[in-house]
Amino acid sequence: MSRTHQSGSSTVWSLVLFATLALFAAALYTIFVVAPVEQQMGIVQKIFYFHVPSAYAMYIGFFVSAVASGVYLLKRDPRWDAVAVAGAEVGTLFCLIVLLTGPLWARKAWGVWWTWDPRLTTTLLSGMIFAAYLALRSMGDTGEVEKRFASALALLGLVNLPLIHYSVQRWRGVHPTVITGKGGGLESEMYWALGLSFLAFTGLAALLIWARASIERQREESVRLRLELMHR
């Protein structure tokens, strides 16, 4: 039964992997061949097609981490803790991508690498919260107290996520709102490029969280075996 389940998981994993690779290929073709160059900003606007989906993948990672942390606090099941760690790591990876690709676009569009715009600041804050989570978890074999403290930190990070999303609507800033705003939006080819990138990054985030959680469960198992060996 277990072997059948494992085989089924492996098939799903392979399907998601191939779908993600195909989506990335299609997204890159649409971004660089089909989608037109933006009139005002020029070619640098094409950073947008990876920058925005990276932010979305960051939301996925942090959201998964926070929810899994909440479930772990309720059930104390180490499998949920493994998912929380995986979500935090993957979310932080995409947060780093967002914080590095954003300034590269901003330098051309705004003339500065960084400005204390509400969306930029709240994104940086989220990155720092989950970096603190990972720093706490990377201190050797984490005990139960550290795990619970880290889970609470992840839940705190969850509170910040809606702030990132709604900051552009509630507070004045310079960050563009071409998707959620009431302006002209994007041209149809640009929507295609962005949509394909969104799908590709969703698949990528799911695969990375899945793989990282699996490794974390193995690490938990090795800690359990070590303890078992010590008590013999």
């Binding site: 070619i43 640098v44 990876f50 590269l104 676009w105 051309k108």
Partner: peptide, 11 residues
């Protein structure tokens, strides 16, 4: 802009 684009995708 091309250099910035290349840098972003490389990152």
């Amino acid at each position: 802009g091309g250099a910035l684009l290349l840098a972003a995708y490389s990152v």
